[in-house]
């Protein structure tokens, strides 16, 4: 595939995220966005997991690129990154995995990680490779809007969305600076803290989401700490998407190989079932 073709497919690929939100929005549905770490337990298993969770109701998949120093992650995803790196995962393998999955599924894929592995890969090279593989978005936890200019330009050229986090601590100034560079959707972090399943979600989140909506028309996904179908149901009543990460990673970590796909699929289906319940919408 030539660079020219990359550009074309990139533009089209970027629309997979839009299309999901648009299609769901038309019928009042909400997007289930699930996170898993690539290469945990290994790349072959991750491919099967992605196809399985997409078939069971995940509308968008966030695929974690493991990093040695995941500062924004709690113990669950730290451990997943460690397992993946120990098994030899590299950013190249993660991109190759996207290409493999893309042969069999149109599920939108967001590459989710830390800046250094992407910076070392080369910003332009990464954008091109991710585009050719069929990735739709990139989210870089430790790359705030102020430092994102160069990468944003490369992703634009490749037709890939750069997705940003906003948090309860984001004031109006931060929201403005961030939405200006954002595309795809806004990932609203429901807690001030690291990733990880939590028993209760703050009652303040709906208010935060309303505040962010004043500044952007982008869909808003809410994540960090959502671990049960009940929580997913509540969040889907006010957000456009519900992000579940650590809880799914926990299911993967605690499942034997023989029941891995079955357990992950069932868990994702249970999350989706709650969200589809129109009674709360």
């Amino acid at each position: 595939m030539t660079a020219k073709d990359n550009h074309k497919t990139g533009t089209r690929a970027g629309n997979r995220i839009n299309r999901v939100f648009r299609t769901l929005g038309e019928r009042g549905g909400k997007a289930l966005i699930t996170f898993i770490t690539a290469g945990d337990p290994d790349m072959a298993a991750t491919k099967e997991l992605m196809l399985t969770i997409a078939a069971n109701g995940a509308d968008i998949i966030e695929l974690g690129i493991p990093f040695s120093d995941p500062m924004a992650d709690g113990p669950t995803i730290q451990a997943a990154s460690e397992r993946s790196l120990k098994a030899g995962a590299t950013p190249q393998q993660v991109i190759d995995l996207v290409a493999e999955v893309r042969k069999e599924s149109e599920v939108p894929i967001v590459l989710f990680g830390y800046y250094n592995p992407i910076f070392q890969y080369g910003l332009k090279r990464f954008a091109k490779a991710a585009s050719s593989a069929g990735a739709d978005g990139v989210l870089v936890v430790d790359l705030p809007a102020e430092e994102a200019g160069e990468f944003k330009a490369e992703l634009d050229r490749a037709g890939i969305d750069l997705i940003f986090l906003l948090t309860p601590t984001s004031n109006e100034g931060r929201i403005r600076v961030t939405v200006e560079k954002a595309s795809g959707f806004i990932y609203f972090v429901s807690v001030t803290g690291v990733t990880g399943a939590r028993a209760a979600l703050s009652e303040k989140v709906p208010g935060y989401v309303r505040k962010v909506r004043r500044f952007t028309g982008l869909p808003i996904g809410v994540g960090f700490g959502i671990s049960t179908p009940e929580q997913a149901k509540v969040v889907s009543s006010y957000a456009d998407g519900v992000v579940v990460g650590s809880a799914l990673v926990n299911v993967i970590a605690s499942s034997d190989r023989a029941v891995l796909l079955k357990n992950a699929g069932a868990f994702v289906a249970s999350l989706k079932t709650g969200m589809a319940d129109k009674a709360v919408l």
């Binding site: 430092e147 984001s170 001030t192």
Partner: peptide, 21 residues
Amino acid sequence: KLGHFGPYGGRYISETLMPAV
């Protein structure tokens, strides 16, 4: 102003901490 020494320095942190710094 954004903490750069040539290409180095800056602020590469998660959004939660941006308002804090």
